[in-house]
Design a protein around this nucleic acid. Structure first.
Lengths: 161, 161
DNA sequence: CCTAAATATATGTTGCAACAGATAGTTGGT
DNA sequence: ACCAACTATCTGTTGCAACATATATTTAGG
């Protein structure tokens, strides 16, 4: 609950917090959340313009990257989302005809997921705007600064307290 | 689609991505999301141990910070959540007896939200574990590095493309 | 006083994520 | 062939966020 002089306009000002942060770690954490949320929202809006959620887009993107049909559990390995919930995620994009399900003949537990034309079209339509957004979001930061940011984020994530 | 030599273990390895990132900006963005998600999850788990969601905790925290009952719209100003949805958020913590609603006598549109004893107890119970978690999450980074991270995050958020 | 606009909060609805558990199919040991 | 364990996917349920819209109350203009 101690007071500390503030260096520059920070998160504290933005959210109208009266007391300064109890620790630099806390400030960093909130700062991280806030930046992440804001940047993500811009992408979400872009995805919505194509009728997709961000995880739906990710699935399409993964399929495109693989270049071949994939099993649901394989797709799950590339997502943060828990395995158990991917089935329903696929449901939705299959219902929208963005992908096709094909029950495998040999091992009938397996369902192959294949990019459908409509899914390919959505990816194509989004490619350029996405690239633009990526560049515009960080245009304040130099290449070197981006590299530093990357490294700090990576290390923060790999704390093994 | 060009290939680039990888410097160190990065996000690309983690998610088993075959192709490297199409831009440094994209890598930074994904890195940001991933770190943010992971750190947030640890807090969410802690909040859940007290039967709270993170935004529910935030409301309690804001009330505690203010030290006085607040109107719903005032609480909203301190949250990222859109105003329209705060009513229901308050609903839930009121139902759990963490706060009390009091319809104001003078302006009967207004509802004052007041911390209830159970809410105060939850805050007290969480205070120490939260502080510990904040410190442990960034214990890989020096004070100076945290300051740099903060600044870069702040600037990334205030890009005015 | 009466009505329109503004303010403060509440509700209906949709879509999604998380967790638990269920089902369908396969494999290996007996 | 039979059953247990395993694997891959699916379904039930809950809770929450977002968006649009509704209700209640106050305020300001004529």
């Amino acid at each position: 609950m101690k007071k500390k002089a503030n260096e520059s306009p920070t998160l504290a000002d933005e959210i109208g917090k009266r007391d300064p942060f109890s620790s630099l770690q806390q400030e960093t954490y909130l700062n991280l959340l806030r930046t992440s949320t804001q940047l993500q929202r811009e992408f979400v809006l872009l995805f919505e313009s194509a009728g997709l959620s961000d995880s739906q887009y990710n699935v399409l993107r993964i399929l495109q990257g693989a270049g071949t049909p994939m099993q649901i559990y394989q797709i799950g390995q590339h997502l943060i989302t828990p395995q158990a919930d991917i089935s329903r995620l696929i449901d939705r994009i299959a219902k929208a005809n963005l992908v096709k399900r094909e029950r495998c003949g040999e091992d009938r537990r397996v369902v192959w997921i294949r990019l459908a034309p409509k899914g390919r079209a959505a990816l194509k339509k989004l490619a350029k705007p996405l690239e633009d957004l990526h560049r515009s979001q960080f245009n304040e930061l130099s290449k070197q600064e981006l590299a530093i940011l990357n490294e700090l984020l990576f290390r923060a994530r790999h704390t093994d307290n």
